[in-house]
Design a protein around this nucleic acid. Structure first.
Length: 553
RNA sequence: GGCCCCUUGGUCAAGCGGUUAAGACAUCGCCCUUUCACGGCGGGGACAUGGGUUCGAUUCCCGUAGGGGUCACCA
């Protein structure tokens, strides 16, 4: 009996690997085209760090006319949740980061290199496991969990490197006959790699992001097929990325230390290894220290957080791009209106250590992004958001024509306002333009500099009776406010007043403030002329009268 | 603990043997302005630390400290 017989005993019906090697033809891509993938476990939750990887992986594929695909790594049934794949796909869709091939929903997929769901690739892994068994590069291991635990404890007590290797690899040197007998006996087993590595030898590896890294070779006889018949991550990675012809494995740097193993796997299977790019994690400040942004502790770790609070997807992506390549910021400054597709991302310029997450920065980017939107676009985006998260806002925006006017205030010019960072800011921002919201609560007026009630009343009364005319253009409108200022003894021009402040009790700006506060109950609003135009004479008067009424109390 | 990686202002970061050590966010001040934003100008603020190597180290080497990752039949 030899290795081949043992392999046949374990996997009697597996196809020869040549079947798969031929089935998956070479991708017909341009020279230099990069093939990348996103390979999540279907837990449904997409972490900001994962989105970061997707942005990077998809970008480098796109900019080289390559392929970006989605592979679902569901080899751990214990962790799987219902509709996990859908959750991931929906999140990617929310950010406009749909893959070229791979899973489209829980069951359907597109592409010629599938299945793209690992649990459906069981036969493939078995063929390759058999291939290794035939050559004695893998073997069945009958160690029970208890046995392994005992081994670990001994190793710990003796303060030696833990693991299944060397003399500790109890079933490594079992004869084929002994192994076959145990199998026939019904003993349970898993398949391990018969590692050829030596711990005292170093391998040199060049990571696209991390640069040159030296590691000891892997000498652990790691599990390749688990008791449930599914492969471990490592084995599946080698086979899938070979068959799917991934050129660049872009993943989190928690995998960096597995590189020696992965390289070894590729080598023992006779595959050409892909390039690796290990991305540093996004960190979070915590009690003076840093830690990875955590799914459990940090709401902002979930990408759904951004759709919930209404940060535009472009802003999130731009932020991520900015972390990836800081040159993006400069590029954006020089190309304020260019699509990010034009930006060339360089993997080797990525930071090797993890950046602290900065919500202030992301919101700043969001403000800039939104400031470039048209009123129409803002209206649509706000409606989309409000449909899911704020019914009251949705009602407010029912009158589209009016809403467009409100969103159009000081927008579309060279220096647009930057006061909306997320759609959840909108309501507070526009409420006062709606009478039903405006009169809803007890109105408070803080007239700032002018505190004399009689003077305020006089200003409001004069404005209503003498100066306001809704047909005035902006210049005329403002000239009239100046006239009003003059009539109550204030300076017409701020400049004049600044030169001789003792000459007047105040200036036209103070008068404007009174009108503004009476009109909106806020001291900070955008252009008051536009506000009055949109509100119209009737509402303007009603509001000013209301302010006088409150003053009379 | 073993192995691996990292360490430039509050944060993200350029620079990689000779620089007044960029820029962005944040912060502060001034200007613009009918308010607030926007915009413009300016200020404060950094090469973890100790040794080398060198005419010269933020840049190269070694140690120390600090941070991160990893050591599963999880990915």
């Amino acid at each position: 009996m030899d290795y081949k017989d043992l392999a046949n005993l374990i996997f009697p019906n597996s196809k020869d690997i040549s079947y798969y090697e031929e089935k998956y033809k070479n991708r017909n891509l341009d020279e230099g085209a990069i093939v990348t993938r996103f390979a999540p476990s279907p837990t449904g939750f997409v972490h900001l760090g994962s989105l970061y990887q997707v942005v990077v992986a998809r970008k480098v594929a796109k900019q080289t006319n390559g392929v970006f695909f989605l592979r679902v790594e569901d080899t751990d049934q214990k962790r799987e949740i219902e509709n996990g794949v859908t959750g991931i796909i929906e999140s990617l869709k929310d950010f406009g980061l749909t893959p070229d091939e791979g899973m489209k929903d829980e069951i359907n997929e597109i592409g010629n290199y599938g299945p793209y769901k690992q649990s459906l690739r069981k036969e493939i892994y078995e063929s390759y496991a058999k291939y290794l068994l035939e050559q004695g590069k893998a073997y069945p291991c009958f160690a029970t969990p208890e046995e392994l635990e005992e081994m670990r404890q001994k190793q710990e007590a003796a303060k030696i490197r833990p693991g299944y290797y060397g003399v500790w690899a109890k079933y490594r040197n079992l004869s084929v006959e002994e192994a076959a007998e145990k199998i026939k006996n019904g003993d349970s087993y898993i398949i391990r790699l018969r590692s050829e590595g030596k711990e005292d030898r170093k391998i040199k590896h060049h990571d696209v992001i991390k640069g040159n890294v030296d590691f000891p070779e892997n000498d652990q006889d790691i599990v390749i097929i688990k008791a449930d018949g599914l492969p471990t991550y490592h084995f599946a990675h080698a086979i899938d990325d070979h068959l799917m012809q991934t050129t660049h494995v872009i993943r989190g740097d928690e995998w960096l230390s597995s590189v020696p193993l992965h390289l070894q796997l590729f080598q023992m299977l006779g595959f050409k290894a892909p390039k690796y790019a290990h991305i540093a994690p996004i960190m979070k400040e915590d009690e003076g220290g840093k830690r990875k942004l955590s799914k459990r502790k940090d709401p902002e770790a979930a990408v759904s957080y951004y759709t919930e609070i209404g940060v535009p997807k472009e802003a999130v992506i731009e932020y991520l791009l900015n972390i990836a390549n800081s040159s993006f910021e400069l590029w954006r400054k020089q190309n304020p209106n260019t699509s990010i597709n034009e930006f060339e991302l360089q993997l080797n310029k990525m930071s090797v250590s993890g950046a602290l997450f900065d919500i202030v920065k992301i919101l700043d980017i969001a403000k800039t992004v939104i400031s470039k939107y048209s009123a129409e676009k803002i209206y649509e985006e706000t409606i989309n958001w409000a449909e899911n998260y704020d019914k009251e806002l949705l009602e407010l925006l029912e009158n589209k024509e009016y809403a467009l006017k409100v969103f159009g205030i000081e927008r579309g010019n060279a220096k647009p306002r930057k006061d909306i960072a997320k759609w959840s800011d909108v309501k507070e921002n526009i409420e006062y333009m709606y009478d039903n919201k405006f009169y809803e609560k007890e109105l408070e007026y803080d007239y700032q500099k002018i505190i004399d009630k009689d003077l305020i009343k006089k200003i409001l009364k004069l404005y209503i009776e003498k100066y306001y005319n809704e047909n005035d253009d902006k210049q005329m409108w403002f000239d009239k406010i100046k006239d009003l200022a003059e009539e109550v003894g204030f300076a017409r021009e701020v400049k004049e007043w600044k030169q001789e402040p003792e000459k007047w009790p105040g200036h036209v700006g103070d008068i404007s403030t009174v009108l503004r506060v009476a009109l909106t109950s806020k001291s900070n609003t955008p252009d008051m002329y536009e506000i009055m135009q949109i509100l119209g004479k009737e509402k303007v008067f009603k509001r000013l009268e209301k302010a006088m009424e409150v003053l009379n109390k």
